[in-house]
Deep mutational scan, measured.
Amino acid sequence: KYKEAKESFQRFLENHEKMTSTTRYKKAEQMFGEMEVWNAISERDRLEIYEDVL
């Protein structure tokens, strides 16, 4: 289930129109921090996936 959450988060970042190569992690956290997809995984994993996607 956790792996699915990580994959969902990656797809979310890859497909969200507001995500560009210039979007900083903290800005994304402000935009999406309340969303379930954002909070479903640990911050360490979130940051790792974020850096992989951008």
Results as ranks from 00 to 15, higher is better:
residue 1 K to A: 00
residue 39 N to H: 07
residue 32 F to Y: 12
residue 10 Q to V: 11
residue 11 R to D: 09
residue 26 K to R: 11
residue 26 K to M: 03
residue 21 S to T: 10
residue 48 E to G: 07
residue 4 E to V: 07
residue 7 E to D: 12
residue 53 V to D: 14
residue 33 G to C: 01
residue 27 K to S: 14
residue 32 F to A: 11
residue 48 E to V: 12
residue 5 A to Y: 08
residue 28 A to E: 05
residue 49 I to T: 14
residue 1 K to L: 02
residue 30 Q to C: 05
residue 44 R to A: 15
residue 48 E to I: 12
residue 11 R to I: 07
residue 25 Y to R: 02
residue 52 D to R: 15
residue 22 T to R: 10
residue 38 W to H: 00
residue 32 F to C: 07
residue 34 E to L: 02
residue 28 A to R: 01
residue 15 N to S: 02
residue 6 K to I: 06
residue 17 E to L: 10
residue 33 G to L: 00
residue 4 E to G: 07
residue 10 Q to A: 14
residue 43 E to R: 05
residue 48 E to D: 10
residue 29 E to G: 01
residue 14 E to Y: 02
residue 39 N to D: 02
residue 45 D to H: 03
residue 28 A to M: 07
residue 7 E to Q: 13
residue 11 R to K: 14
residue 48 E to Y: 07
residue 23 T to L: 14
residue 26 K to N: 08
residue 34 E to H: 14
residue 36 E to W: 01
residue 10 Q to R: 15
residue 27 K to W: 09
residue 1 K to N: 14
residue 45 D to C: 01
residue 9 F to M: 03
residue 50 Y to S: 08
residue 26 K to H: 11
residue 2 Y to T: 01
residue 16 H to M: 06
residue 20 T to E: 08
residue 46 R to W: 00
residue 46 R to S: 03
residue 23 T to V: 10
residue 20 T to N: 13
residue 40 A to N: 12
residue 32 F to I: 08
residue 8 S to A: 15
residue 49 I to A: 06
residue 53 V to A: 04
residue 28 A to N: 01
residue 53 V to Q: 13
residue 24 R to E: 15
residue 33 G to F: 00
residue 41 I to M: 05
residue 33 G to V: 01
residue 6 K to V: 07
residue 23 T to P: 05
residue 8 S to K: 11
residue 14 E to S: 11
residue 5 A to F: 04
residue 39 N to E: 05
residue 38 W to R: 13
residue 5 A to P: 05
residue 49 I to P: 11
residue 36 E to Y: 02
residue 4 E to Q: 12
residue 44 R to T: 15
residue 3 K to N: 09
residue 31 M to G: 05
residue 46 R to L: 00
residue 9 F to G: 09
residue 24 R to W: 06
residue 25 Y to V: 05
residue 34 E to W: 04
residue 23 T to C: 01
residue 39 N to G: 06
residue 41 I to W: 01
residue 19 M to T: 03
residue 6 K to W: 01
residue 50 Y to V: 04
residue 11 R to V: 11
residue 30 Q to W: 04
residue 20 T to L: 14
residue 26 K to T: 15
residue 48 E to R: 13
residue 40 A to T: 05
residue 49 I to R: 08
residue 25 Y to A: 05
residue 21 S to G: 13
residue 4 E to N: 09
residue 49 I to F: 02
residue 12 F to A: 05
residue 12 F to T: 06
residue 44 R to L: 08
residue 39 N to Y: 00
residue 41 I to S: 05
residue 43 E to L: 03
residue 33 G to Y: 02
residue 3 K to F: 00
residue 29 E to M: 02
residue 38 W to C: 11
residue 21 S to L: 10
residue 28 A to I: 01
residue 6 K to C: 12
residue 3 K to I: 05
residue 39 N to F: 00
residue 31 M to H: 03
residue 46 R to Y: 01
residue 24 R to A: 15
residue 21 S to C: 12
residue 43 E to C: 06
residue 14 E to Q: 15
residue 38 W to L: 05
residue 35 M to N: 06
residue 51 E to V: 04
residue 53 V to N: 15
residue 5 A to R: 06
residue 29 E to T: 03
residue 51 E to S: 13
residue 13 L to S: 04
residue 39 N to A: 01
residue 18 K to Q: 09
residue 34 E to M: 11
residue 29 E to L: 03
residue 48 E to A: 11
residue 41 I to P: 02
residue 11 R to Y: 09
residue 20 T to Q: 10
residue 47 L to A: 01
residue 38 W to A: 07
residue 6 K to Y: 03
residue 28 A to D: 06
residue 41 I to H: 06
residue 35 M to A: 09
residue 5 A to V: 04
residue 27 K to G: 07
residue 22 T to Y: 13
residue 44 R to E: 14
residue 25 Y to M: 04
